[in-house]
Amino acid sequence: MTLLRMARPRATRANAFAALLAIALGFAIATQVQQTDQSGLEQLREDELVRILDDVNQEQGRLATDTRELESSRDNLLSGASSSSEALKSAQDRLDTLGILTGTTPATGPGIVVTINDPDHKVTSARLLDALQELRDAGAEAVQIGDVRVVASTWFADVDGAIQISGERVAPPYSIKAIGDPATMASAMDIPGGVTESVRGDGATPTVRQADTIDITALHSLQPPRYARPVPAPSK
């Protein structure tokens, strides 16, 4: 019985104070996190808030369109009417989409062409990477820089005073082709403190041209996996 009494926590003033201190600290942390989240938006300018809202609306619209297309394909497959042809069409559409995402097939569509004239070689690979990230955030579906097709595994580096993209040397003027909504991507390039302003700060001259049709012809060569192997189908 003595050991059990010793093991029980005693309600001392020190324990009560420690408990109150822990509660107060937790409340302070939660309040600080909430204030930080709110101040992150409060400190933005009106044009930046409008751009964020526009990006959200654009993304919502794209997701709604994708949802409707997937639901339509599902309904056609479940209906049983012409299920074979519908399944074949769905598979081909999926293959075409994967070909664009992996860069193994050409792509065409509306978009923009960003040209960066940099005679003094002031622009770095990091600046081109920033441009790529802005385009992706604005919904670019296919991108080509110079003669290099940009995919998920594309890397940028400064080597011997030149820019390399996935081992390929690119020289100014840098040409960036991107397929997507032209107005959205052009606005993303021209936001205050964005890519075009930063490029001008580097001493280079950027231009952005919107077009109804952009042809991306550079292709990415897939490398065979070194370690991964497909799982064989189970025997019946």
Rank of each mutant, 00 (worst) to 15 (best):
V143Y: 04
P192R: 07
G180M: 00
N15T: 06
H121C: 01
Q60K: 11
R10I: 14
T36H: 11
T115F: 02
A14E: 15
D212V: 03
S83T: 12
G161Y: 03
M185E: 01
T213C: 01
E48M: 09
A233K: 12
D212N: 14
D181T: 00
A211Y: 00
L88D: 12
S39Q: 14
A152D: 11
A64P: 06
M6E: 15
L78Y: 12
T196H: 02
R10P: 07
G109H: 01
E168H: 13
A162R: 13
A211K: 01
S83V: 12
L95A: 15
G80L: 02
A233H: 08
Q92T: 12
A171T: 15
D190A: 13
S235L: 11
F156W: 07
M189C: 12
A131R: 02
K122N: 15
S84W: 04
V148W: 06
L20C: 03
D118K: 05
G193N: 10
A204N: 07
L95P: 01
T36L: 13
R13L: 15
S187M: 10
R149L: 08
L4R: 15
F17R: 12
V113A: 09
L63Q: 11
V150W: 03
P232V: 03
E69V: 09
E134Y: 10
E69W: 04
T31E: 07
R149M: 04
R94H: 09
N76W: 05
T184N: 08
E168A: 15
A186W: 02
K177I: 09
H121D: 08
L129D: 09
R74N: 11
D93K: 08
A18D: 08
Q223C: 00
V114K: 02
L222N: 10
S198T: 08
R45D: 14
Q35H: 11
T12C: 09
S90F: 13
D120C: 06
L101H: 07
R209L: 07
D75C: 03
E48S: 11
L77S: 03
T213D: 05
Q92A: 10
E134P: 01
M6H: 14
R74W: 13
D160I: 03
D75N: 10
D37A: 15
T102F: 15
L63T: 08
A183R: 10
F156Q: 02
V159T: 10
W155Q: 14
D190L: 09
P9M: 09
G203Y: 06
E141S: 14
L21M: 14
V50D: 10
G80W: 00
G103Y: 05
V56I: 11
K89E: 09
L88V: 12
P173D: 08
A186N: 07
T196G: 02
N57W: 06
A131T: 08
L101D: 07
A87Q: 05
V150D: 04
K236E: 02
L219D: 01
E46P: 00
L49Y: 06
P106F: 01
L41I: 12
S85E: 13
T124W: 06
Q38T: 10
V50N: 08
P119V: 03
V143Q: 05
R10V: 14
G180R: 02
R226V: 11
I214R: 01
T12Q: 07
T154D: 02
G201N: 10
H121T: 09
R62D: 12
V208G: 02
P173T: 09
